[in-house]
């Protein structure tokens, strides 16, 4: 892996993360169990345990701008692997919250727009309306045609409802 240059220090960063996530960062042994178990690790910019180390060094901007925090789906595999009970998924969750609230650059805007489309739909209908979510997401990405065949197949198999759900 490339070297990570420490060119910023935000002394409060690790405290902020611990407060938001209720996880104890100093319990991390850097044994790499979380990174080894993570199904998404190979597509991440930094490995999950690297993120913990970076937080400890105060590399706030680098962490919040990284793709890692958005590629984490919160599947909790890391939390199951960790021999020292560090809640990695909660840490990633709080980093996403911070990235949004501090208007940091979002490395994976597509993933965030999808989350927003889901949340909007729940606010509107009380539960999700899949077709609406997909249409909204596709418009936000200006990408209407990928997976079009799949969408039509799912409509034909009655896997997507046309009208919004009634609560």
């Amino acid at each position: 892996m490339d070297k990570i240059v420490i060119n910023e220090t935000s002394g409060e960063f690790s405290k902020q993360v611990e407060k938001l996530s209720h996880a104890n960062l100093s319990r991390c042994l850097h044994c790499l169990a979380c990174s080894g178990g993570c199904p998404f690790a190979e597509d991440m910019e930094y490995l999950p345990n690297t993120i913990i180390r970076m937080i400890q060094f105060g590399l706030k901007e680098k962490v919040l701008k990284s793709s890692t925090i958005w590629l984490c789906v919160g599947c909790n595999t890391c939390s199951m692997e960790c021999p020292n009970a560090v809640d990695m998924a909660a840490i990633m969750d709080s980093l996403r919250q911070m990235a949004i609230s501090e208007h940091s650059l979002i490395a994976e805007p597509g993933i965030l727009s999808f989350h927003n489309a889901v949340v909007d739909s729940i606010f509107r209908h009380g539960r999700t309306h899949k077709l609406e979510i997909m249409m909204k997401y596709k418009f936000s990405q200006k990408d209407l045609f990928s997976d079009m065949d799949l969408g039509l197949k799912m409509l034909a198999k009655k896997k997507l409802d046309l009208p919004p759900p009634t609560a």
Binding site: F40, E108, G110, I111, F114, M134, D147
Partner: peptide, 9 residues
């Protein structure tokens, strides 16, 4: 992969 199936297929 849950929702990454949509945003990072």
């Amino acid at each position: 992969g849950t929702f990454l199936s949509v945003s990072r297929p």
